[in-house]
């Protein structure tokens, strides 16, 4: 029974991956719209873009980690 609950929890935690996907999409989309408005400034901001994506993605990775822990470590 406990194992099944853990699996359900893992599934719920995987929702976090989707949330992270929304976050990454927001970051990339806003960067793109900004870059299209001012293409000359875009090249200098790619580093910031990747840092932003990395931070957004890290939280998704955390939820993935929680899912993995529930699946395999509990």
């Amino acid at each position: 029974m406990e194992g099944e609950l853990a699996h359900i929890g893992a599934g719920l935690a995987a929702i976090g991956s989707g949330a992270a996907a929304i976050g990454v999409g927001t970051v990339a989309g806003n960067f793109l719209s900004g870059a299209l408005r001012n293409p000359s400034a875009a090249a200098g901001q790619t580093a910031t873009l990747f840092i932003g994506i990395a931070f957004a993605e890290a939280l998704g990775i955390f939820s993935f980690l929680v899912a993995l822990l529930l699946m395999f470590a509990v």
């Binding site: 990395a54 993605e57 890290a58 990775i61 955390f62 993935f64 980690l65 993995l68």
Partner: peptide, 16 residues
């Protein structure tokens, strides 16, 4: 924490 888990998590997730 985030620095390390990001790298390992990404790699592990993709391979899994």
């Amino acid at each position: 924490v985030s620095h390390s888990i990001r790298l390992a998590g990404n790699l592990m997730a993709g391979h899994a």
